[in-house]
Simulated assay, not measured.
Amino acid sequence: MKQLKLSNQLCFPVYALSRLVTAHYQPLLGELDLTYPQYLVMLSLWEHQALSVKALGQLLMLDSGTLTPLLKRLEAKKLIKRVRSKEDERIVNIYLTEQGAQLKQAAADIPQHMQRSLELTNDEVKGIKNLIAPILKRHLD
Rank of each mutant, 00 (worst) to 15 (best):
E124K: 07
K137G: 04
P69G: 05
Q26V: 09
F12W: 06
H24E: 13
S18A: 14
D63I: 06
L96C: 01
A133H: 13
K81I: 09
L28G: 01
Q58Y: 12
L10H: 07
S18Q: 12
R116C: 06
L59V: 01
Q26Y: 01
G30M: 11
L40F: 03
I132N: 06
E98A: 02
Q9D: 12
R116D: 13
Q105H: 13
L140K: 09
A55M: 07
L32Y: 06
A101K: 15
Q112I: 00
L43C: 11
H139Q: 07
I135M: 14
G100A: 00
A55Q: 15
K54D: 11
L71T: 09
S7Y: 06
T68K: 11
G65A: 12
V92Y: 02
Q38P: 01
G127K: 07
E119L: 04
V83P: 04
V125A: 01
K54L: 00
M1V: 06
A16V: 03
T68R: 14
M61F: 04
Q102T: 08
Y39F: 14
K5I: 11
L56N: 12
Q38W: 02
Y15R: 07
S7T: 08
I80C: 00
L118Q: 04
P134N: 10
D33P: 02
K81H: 05
A55T: 13
L6A: 14
R82S: 08
T121I: 01
T121H: 03
Y95M: 01
N122V: 08
Q38T: 00
M42V: 08
K86A: 08
S64C: 04
K126A: 14
N130R: 05
T66G: 09
R19D: 11
M42W: 08
E89G: 13
Y25M: 15
V21K: 05
G100E: 01
T68A: 12
P134G: 14
M114R: 12
A55V: 08
N8D: 09
V21L: 03
L120Q: 01
L60K: 06
I128F: 11
E124F: 00
V21A: 11
A108T: 15
M114H: 08
H24T: 06
V83N: 02
L6D: 15
R138A: 14
P37Y: 02
K86D: 04
L60E: 11
Y25H: 15
Q105A: 15
L28I: 06
K137Y: 12
L28Y: 04
Q102S: 13
L51C: 06
L28V: 05
I110N: 00
T68I: 05
N122L: 10
I110C: 01
E98V: 00
L6V: 11
A55L: 10
A101M: 05
N122Q: 14
Q9G: 12
M61L: 02
Q105K: 15
V41G: 00
L79S: 08
H24S: 13
L74V: 10
A55S: 15
L6R: 15
L120K: 00
H48Q: 13
V125W: 04
G57T: 05
D88F: 00
A101N: 13
S64M: 02
S85A: 08
Q102H: 09
M114D: 12
E89H: 13
G127L: 01
S117I: 04
R90V: 02
V41W: 00
I94Q: 01
A76W: 04
S85H: 09
R84K: 14
L140D: 09
Q115G: 08
L96N: 07
